[in-house]
């Protein structure tokens, strides 16, 4: 049984339906990316998993539990972490306070998880008393991921983690995501940088007009002439 199972999902915002009959699976520890043209509903698909859209039909199950239609503050208890694309840190809080907020649902700040985040992103430990809003784009992205990792989720949802980063930082960010995945956390990622994302992932989905287009391993999709021509710029 897969970790995340999205089945025949219809969803959107208010009355506006964006996703139609979407199927999506993530296995335990798997690295899955969603790519596709602008407006295909990639981010909407991810937000729907985390309860941030209007549910219109179909089911979402996580680790065997039905989480369809639950709000994010409940879904987070099941072991799903979410890193939004923009505004994904609390700028007026210190780095450490941001990480503490990541573990808000626990009674105490989990020291082992905090230690693990600091080991993974040493810059966050150095800067822990600094106001998060004063950090660079790459550091903010690390903090946003660190915050989501504080609950040691089984599945991490990443919305365009390379967006807005300087080109020389993009590879570093992808390396870090590989590391997180290597330590056992399943990843579901939406990426503009489709070629790189497909090279890194285990499996990819190409979304077209809010529906499943192509599914396959990263290499298969990269090798598919039609996918390359239509979605990866040749």
């Amino acid at each position: 049984m897969s970790l995340l199972n999205v089945s025949s999902l219809d969803a959107g915002y208010g009355d506006l339906q964006i996703l139609t009959d979407l199927d999506l699976e993530v296995e335990d520890g798997e690295y899955v990316t969603i790519v596709g043209p602008n407006g295909a509903g990639k981010s909407t698909a991810m937000k729907s998993v985390f309860g941030l859209t209007s549910h219109m039909g179909g089911t979402v199950t996580f680790d065997g539990d039905d989480i369809t239609g639950l709000p994010p503050e409940e879904i987070i208890h099941y072991g799903v972490g979410y890193v939004p694309q923009n505004d994904n840190i609390f700028g007026s809080l210190t780095v450490r306070e941001n990480l503490e907020m990541g573990a808000y649902i626990l009674d105490e700040v989990p020291e082992p998880a905090l230690r693990a985040v600091f080991d993974r992103f040493p810059i966050l430990e150095e800067r822990q008393e600094q106001k998060a809003g004063t950090m660079s784009g790459g550091q903010r992205q690390m903090l946003a991921m660190g915050r989501a990792l504080m609950l040691e989720p089984d599945l991490l949802l990443l919305d365009e983690p390379s967006a807005g980063l300087a080109p020389d930082l993009v590879q570093d960010m992808f390396d870090r995501i590989d590391d997180i995945n290597d330590s056992g956390t399943a990843i579901l990622m939406v990426e503009q940088n489709a070629k790189e994302a497909l090279r890194r992932c285990d499996r990819g989905y190409v979304l077209v007009n809010g529906q499943n287009g192509y599914v396959g391993s990263g290499d298969e999709l990269l090798g598919d002439d039609e996918v390359r021509q239509r979605f990866l710029g040749g």
């Binding site: 994010p72 503050e73 939004p84 609390f90 907020m101």
Partner: peptide
């Protein structure tokens, strides 16, 4: 801290699990 977080960014507070 949760109050400051919420005044900073409500949507993020919600996805962080702050009630």
């Amino acid at each position: 801290k949760a109050m400051r977080a919420m005044s900073d960014n409500k949507d993020l507070a919600r996805v962080t699990g702050i009630p």
